[in-house]
Write a protein that binds this DNA or RNA. Structure first.
Lengths: 154, 154
DNA sequence: CATAAATAGATCGTACACAAATTAATCGTA
DNA sequence: TACGATTAATTTGTGTACGATCTATTTATG
């Protein structure tokens, strides 16, 4: 007597064999690895991504930032208010178009950049793969993301 | 005359060139693609992952489920209570060890499995890559996840 | 067998993440 | 130029996520 009839009608793959779960769990692993490193800077991982974007270029609008990070303003507004409260960024309305909010790094915000470079090195070491290999994997993942996004829009 | 002095002291890569961001944004893209499909089942994406795990095998503890999905009880308890309230799972203390909570699918929980198979097909189509290619990428991502996790533990 | 240590869940506080609704400013077109 | 449509950001409500803490139960050790 078998303990259970193997599996009901439509067979669903094991969660560990699903691509979406690989991505989901890898995302968790990155977040967990970043957490103790970012704690020293009093930044969360999404806040860090925002800071990286602003270190690249200052004076962007919330909309532009959201376009880069694929985040909506309802996520960014409270996050940016926390960064403002922490003294890392300023949020000012664009005088040319009062609908827009311009984001600028403060002196303290710029100063964090140095520590962030160390963190990037830590993460590189943790992944432990050469740049060539990482770029190839990154290209694959970006390809999948773009495919998913093009379906979303259709 | 260059428009800006290239970059301040330590150079941080563009966010779009960071592996962690690829994973982060791909995760978003999956969530966004799943959302309208799962809305029909009144499930969120993390709830769906829990259901997939339970469709694979019933009667697990919260601990076991968390081990598979890399989630802890403070995330799973409220999520499972919502699934219970939706009539999809039951949560009962293990009489053999009252510390544990056993998770079982209800008839309604089992019934959803059929719809889920359709969703899996939709996602496959969205990715639009053959199984061979997907498996290779999945292996790469899982490898990175495992590397990150082994560093976390050390 | 009594009590300390370990374990499994649950609770609480903080911070994303997003849909839907709201407010304010700008644009398009008659 | 008036005014409806569009746009940018904010607010609100729901649902993850997780660290820290707490409770209840089981296990280990004297």
């Amino acid at each position: 007597m078998t303990p259970a009839p193997a599996s009901q009608p439509p067979s669903i793959p094991d969660v560990s064999e699903m691509l979406c779960f690989s991505v989901y769990s890898a995302e968790h692993a990155f977040t967990q690895l970043y957490r103790p490193l970012l704690d020293k800077l009093k930044l969360t991982y999404p806040q860090y991504l925002v800071m990286v974007t602003l270190w690249g270029r200052d004076g962007r609008t919330v909309k532009e930032l959201g376009g880069i990070l694929f985040l909506d303003s309802s996520t960014l507004t409270p996050l940016l208010k926390r960064l403002e409260a922490a003294g890392l960024v300023t949020r000012t309305r664009n005088p040319k178009d009062e609908r827009e909010v311009l984001l600028h790094l403060t002196k303290e915000g710029h100063a964090l950049r140095g520590h962030a470079a160390e963190i990037a090195r830590c993460i590189q070491d943790a992944v432990g793969l050469d740049g060539e290999t990482i770029n190839a994997i990154r290209a694959s993942i970006d390809d999948i993301r773009d495919r998913l996004q093009s379906v979303e829009r259709s």
